[in-house]
Design a protein around this nucleic acid. Structure first.
Lengths: 215, 215, 215, 215
DNA sequence: GATGAATGAGTGTTCATTCAT
DNA sequence: TATGAATGAACACTCATTCAT
């Protein structure tokens, strides 16, 4: 709308592209192999630029990892907020949110893997990213308002905490991506097939709704 | 010198002890840092024996990792089967199983972390452990029999698959340990406190029961 | 716009100021860390200008180092010649010169450190500075004339070479600054305290005078 | 005399030789280029072993540098104590000590250069070597006893501190090696020629003796 | 069987310097 | 002129693994 302030030179645009290129490649590598398993050399090779540029833009392997993590969280938050389900009837809104959450995890296994890695590292990098809590507030507020409406309409149980609800939804969605490999080997069930996905999507929605709905 | 009843020589017993010592240390290191993050030198140092013995008993870092993983799964299976809840009324039996599953995860974060690591590695090591599926059958059979009884008593819904049920229970239990660090930073909720644990335990049982029960 | 008396344009003055600014910072860095230990990036950062300007004015790290060295020698020579002790009685003149030399080293440890560094580098940079010998002639001539007067007055020994005398004075003054750290650790004596300085100043004067004086 | 305790295996002897080999090469490199200027790769290349072994034995570049420094000091102390001049008449004893000190510096420029480097680094490595002060005590005690005898025989001045005396001797000996390059370029005098050495040796002895002797 | 010594390929990182605008 | 982006060669250091005794 207003193009004045963003007077970027060709050079600056290139720099941003270089950064994004590095982040794209690093994102893939870190999510596939974890922080310790990924190799800066390999990342550099798959990039349009050089290893030196990685250090120029991100200072260290850890710095790059943190930037990758931050961007991954930015993206899921952006998606969550883009979908505005609050205006639907509470029952439908909640179903939509659960389905959306499930789909996001399903379609972004690299995000799930990054989060796993970060937890294996005991959250030492996410701890250095500021404002995470405040950036997550909208998701919780959205759930809160839906819960309130549902309670007012006497279709949802009272006393359900929106953070607990979010946790439950995420747990069920996350597991189907995070534990894909061990579950496959332990039980012979492959979460990755379209049929399995569709079936599980319904189940998770049913499970959460059964818990929230007035019995 | 060598008394009959013991079929094992002193030497063999020592060998087993050495193996267990190494596995204990390696288990801790791998679960804390993942496969790539752990260091053979560090593991050897924390052991009563030497680095040479690690290679003698396990051939390679990967071999050691796989042995650690296998032992961890053996232990959870043993625990699951030790608890015989099938004789309780189906409602109580299921509640007991969920609670037990939740507790096991809570009390064995190193197991959870190993499973995460293995999934980050795309299950390449678990894939080399034989008979996993058959070893997991009892858990599923146990759930099946409880579900059957519940359906027969008209208190559980029909058509619930025991593997899906196990998946749901595990997902909810696993997440509270696996995503402890990122959830804490994202939402300020610490899963590790006793109060949080007790509260979540009840919630998870309620959630699963709401889904299974005839409504 | 451009007033006559000043032969330099504003631009040229700025250039000189930039040069001096860089030299000041580089002097500190090189004397603290040596040529190999100092970092161009760090020097640039502590400067009012940019890294590009360092290369503009001095071509290379070595060029900058050489300029720093040259300026340091210029300064000590200027100081030596500013003090005109030749008119004093030879005995007093020599004492004054020794004291002055001692004080200069004491008060300019960065000069001492640069000279040390340059000797560690086997004098490869000073070798490229022209006219050093001729610029040092006045100091020697001054000592010569004092020695001559002292001999004529029969208070100094004959046959003392002014360069040897300068060497002796410098050696004693230099060591107290150059070897400060190792001497402290080896003998527990700190050259840097005011008491230690005052005491040593007297001693050095006495030592040199004992050697020069007719005995 | 007693060969029991030193039962070294061939293997251990090799290890010691490897260590010494590395120290020899590193000593040369560090003294020629300083800590920052020397390259681990280059040191390794000139060695019979590999870079890996340097880290195995010395942990880091700094660790290697410190070991080099410690050995250099050990050697000069050993030499100082091997020469037992205390039994000579005080006048001759002191002359012998000064000459010996001068010769040692002259013949071990690599020691002088290491000490210079360490002072440029502000003594951060020597500070980590224990017992330096106590190891240096014999030198001071030796000077003390000579001074005492000289005073008793009424040929030396009273009140000369042995540490000050050592400092004076060292300063004069050190400078001729340490400042060889800058002095050559500044005054055209080369300390390294045999003639220059012999001349300066006499001068330094005369200078110190003039200071110590009763006037 | 047990120990310290050894290995070589690779791992993250830094350097002085130059380019493009 | 002045600045941020870019470069590639080199740098200190580490890894899992094996050898020799």
């Amino acid at each position: 709308m207003n193009d004045k302030p963003s007077a970027l030179t060709r050079r600056q645009i290139n720099a941003i592209e270089t950064r994004e290129d590095i982040l794209d490649v690093a994102s893939k590598e870190f999510s596939e192999k974890g922080l310790a398993g990924a190799r800066i050399d390999e990342i550099a090779e798959k990039t349009q630029t050089s290893k030196r540029m990685i250090y120029y833009h991100f200072n260290s392997k850890d710095g790059l990892y943190q930037a990758v993590l931050e961007r991954a969280y930015d993206r899921i938050r952006t998606q969550e907020q883009a979908a505005r389900f609050e205006d639907l009837p509470p029952d439908q809104a909640l179903r939509a949110i659960i389905g959306h959450n499930f789909d996001y995890h399903y379609e972004h296994p690299e995000f799930v893997r990054l989060v796993m890695s970060e937890n294996v590292l005991m959250g030492e990098h996410i701890a250095q990213i500021a404002n995470m809590k405040s950036r997550n507030r909208p998701v919780i507020q959205s759930l809160q308002s839906i819960l309130d409406k549902g309670v007012a309409q006497d279709i949802f149980r009272e006393g359900i905490d929106p953070v607990d609800l979010h946790m439950t939804i995420s747990a069920l969605s996350f597991y189907n991506v995070s534990n894909r490999y061990t579950f496959l080997h332990n039980f012979g069930v492959d979460f990755a097939t379209p049929a399995s996905r569709a079936r599980r999507r319904v189940q998770i929605i049913e499970c959460v709704m059964a818990w929230v709905k007035k019995g």
